[in-house]
Each structure stands twice: as C-alpha cells, then as structure tokens.
Amino acid sequence: MTRLRGGVVTAVATLVAVTGCTAEQDKGSAGPGEGKGGGAALAAAESLTVKGRAPKSGYSRDRFGTAWADTDSNSCDTRDDILKRDLKEVKFTGGTCKVTYGLLDPDPYSGKRITYRRGRSQVDIDHVVALSDAWQKGAKYWDPGKRIALANDPLNLLAVDARTNRGKGDGDAATWLPPDKAYRCEYVAAQVAVKKKYGLWVTAAEQSAMKKVLTGCPDQKLPTGGNPTRAPERFRAR
C-alpha cells in the first residue's frame, strides 16, 4: 500500500547508485512517499550490495554535521521543512518557517492521529535510514559533505510519532519495522531508495527482510527525489 504524505511538492529525478564519495546530484524535495512503480522497489532491494556490518566505533551525531542544517538554502531549517511537508493544519510563528502546530494524521508508523505542538516531543523527525546504521554500512568512509547531505535529505526524513520512533533506535529492516503493517511496504521502499541513492550497503539479513516485505507488494514504488548527495561547502562536520 502506498500512502502519499500530504503537501509534498516533488521535482522527480532518476535515482543513480552512488558509491564511495562520488557526488551524483539527485535534486528535488520528495519525501519517502513518491516515486516510480512497476516493482522498482523490489528490484532495487535485490540490487543493493550485501556486506557485513562495520564496527560502530567512531560514530557520533556530529559526524553528520549540525542537526537540521539548512542545506537547501531556503532559509528554513530541515526539521521545519519536514514538519511543513508532513503535517496537516500547520500553524506558524514569525513567518512561514517555524512550525508551532499541526496534525500528523495518520502517523505512518503507528497509524494514530498525533497532535504536534512546538516544545513538546510527541512528533519526531525520523531518519528512515538511521545515521548510525548508515555509518556502519558505508558512511564511515565518506567525506563530511556527503554525510551532511544524508542527514538532511528529505528522501530520508519523515515526521512520526515520537514514542514509536524511539523504539526503533538505529534498527534496520531486519530488526525493526513499523507497527502499522499497512505502511511497511512504503517504509522499506524508502530505506531501499536511500541506500541505493547514497551507495550504502545492506547485511544479508537486512536484504532478506526487505525482500520479504516487498514481495508482498510487488508493485511498490521506489521513492525518488530529495536533495543532492553532497551538502554545500559552507557546511562542516567532524
């Protein structure tokens, strides 16, 4: 089942497999709900490189830059961009960037209706491919600009119920799937799209889990779009 997130404006671009530190530019502002169909998600999952998980040593959030950097230069930070994209009945303070209220209806992970109010932690912006997971599957070897891009790419970001999200941790498809089974196909397709776009690998167990989910929805679309795979030079990370 495919659920399109409300309010997404997309400049669709063809996903290109990226390896190492090659900076293929994949432009647009899509979230995980839009893409191309015809079994593309399952085919892409089967094409991902399979390797063992690298050590987590050396990982920290700082390796991916300052949280919610405005890498698309629209004068709004990434968190507010995603809130604007995914919430309904959005209200702002001081312009059209700072989101102070909205409805997550439904929350893609739990299927519940969640009210967002700024300063209360009922809504998280989740990295669909967790940054720690990315670190252990290729990002450890990237230059900072590519890690910053991944951390702020709308293709890899989703507004979700905070409590459900915190149960996910840095799990991959082999260890965590959304409780709402109706969203699992779209969720896994989003993970596949991000890993293919950035050249991240998967473990054998992870690929098996992805294929198991996507076999149940053979027409599942592969999300496309998002930001370029390298952040502007002005952004820095350790």
Score class of each variant (00 low, 15 high):
P179D: 15
A11E: 06
P178Q: 08
A189Q: 10
K88F: 03
N152H: 07
P228E: 13
S121I: 00
R53V: 03
D26Q: 12
N227E: 06
R234Q: 15
Y101D: 05
T96G: 07
T49V: 14
Q25S: 14
P154L: 09
E233I: 00
Y109V: 00
A67R: 06
G20K: 07
G95T: 07
A237E: 03
E89S: 13
L214Y: 04
L157D: 07
R238Q: 10
I82V: 13
V213Q: 08
G28F: 02
Y109M: 03
L4V: 10
G31W: 11
D133I: 01
P178R: 09
R234G: 00
N165E: 11
L214M: 14
A209G: 03
P32I: 03
A231R: 08
K195H: 00
E206S: 05
A134L: 08
G171A: 13
K112P: 00
A23S: 14
P144I: 06
Y198F: 04
Y198V: 01
R118K: 13
A174C: 06
G226C: 02
P179H: 10
G65D: 05
V16K: 15
T66E: 09
L157G: 00
A174Y: 07
G216K: 14
L4C: 07
L83N: 08
R113E: 15
A45K: 08
S47D: 08
F64Q: 04
R238P: 10
G225L: 04
D72V: 02
P228N: 11
P108K: 12
C21W: 12
A134T: 02
N165P: 00
R118A: 09
Y59H: 01
K221A: 08
L83S: 05
C185I: 01
A190D: 06
P232D: 10
A173I: 01
G226S: 09
F92I: 01
A209Y: 11
E89Y: 11
W201I: 02
D161R: 10
A204E: 14
Q220K: 10
N165Y: 02
C97N: 04
K84G: 00
Q122V: 00
R113C: 02
T203F: 04
K91R: 14
Q136D: 08
A11M: 01
K98S: 12
G138F: 06
Y59R: 13
A11S: 07
K197S: 05
G94K: 01
T14L: 15
R5L: 03
L200Q: 02
T215V: 00
V16A: 14
K221W: 14
C21R: 15
A11K: 11
A173R: 04
D126T: 08
Y109H: 09
N74L: 08
P179L: 10
D219G: 11
A182S: 08
I82A: 09
S47M: 03
Y109K: 09
P106R: 11
L158R: 12
T49D: 13
T49W: 03
A40K: 10
Y141I: 00
D70C: 06
G7S: 14
K112Q: 12
T215C: 06
N227D: 10
T100H: 03
K211C: 04
A54Q: 14
A173D: 03
L214R: 09
A174E: 15
A41T: 01
L87D: 11
W176Q: 10
T49E: 15
E24K: 11
R61W: 02
E34R: 05
P106T: 05
D172P: 05
V50T: 07
A205L: 02
G138H: 05
D107V: 00
